[in-house]
């Protein structure tokens, strides 16, 4: 099973919907896509919508941390929403919730970032 990446931009917010498995096979592709989106569209905030993400490993964490570093320089924020328990546990273990915000749904996340 591979990874399906769906990117949607609203104002300066990038919504990233991932489906499938984020591992070291697929993380490079995700990194490339996110990188170009952030550069071209002048993205400030990122919302990770992980409802359909089944699996993630350390390389996935690497991609997320790298993007966080980028947007935090623009005073941007990263929000995670619709996360399933397995991935949530992984996020917890990696300490990612120290820097990311967790929201129930995409709407909540957008609301928090000031876009209805």
């Amino acid at each position: 099973m591979s990874l399906e990446i769906d990117l949607e931009q609203r104002d300066r917010i990038l919504i990233v919907r991932l489906k499938g498995e984020l591992d070291h096979h697929t993380s490079d592709e995700l990194k490339k896509q996110l990188e170009s989106a952030i550069e071209e569209a002048d993205i400030q905030h990122i919302i990770l919508s992980l409802k359909n993400l089944q699996f993630m490993d350390s390389s996935g964490i690497g991609v997320i941390l790298g993007r966080y570093k980028k947007i935090s320089q623009k005073q941007g924020e990263m929000v995670v929403c619709s996360i399933n328990p397995t991935i949530k546990r992984l996020f917890e273990l990696s300490g990612l919730f120290k820097i990311l915000k967790l929201k129930e749904s995409e709407e909540d996340a957008l609301h928090m970032l000031g876009v209805a």
Binding site: S58, I61, G62, L65, E92, L93, S94, G95, L96, F97, K98, I99
Partner: peptide
């Protein structure tokens, strides 16, 4: 730091030790 939990086996009991810090 970004690492997986550790396990302690005491007799027949196994418990985890986890803490969360960024890598």
């Amino acid at each position: 730091f970004g690492s997986t939990p550790s396990f302690v086996k005491r007799g027949n009991r196994v418990f985890t030790i986890s803490s969360s810090n960024l890598p």
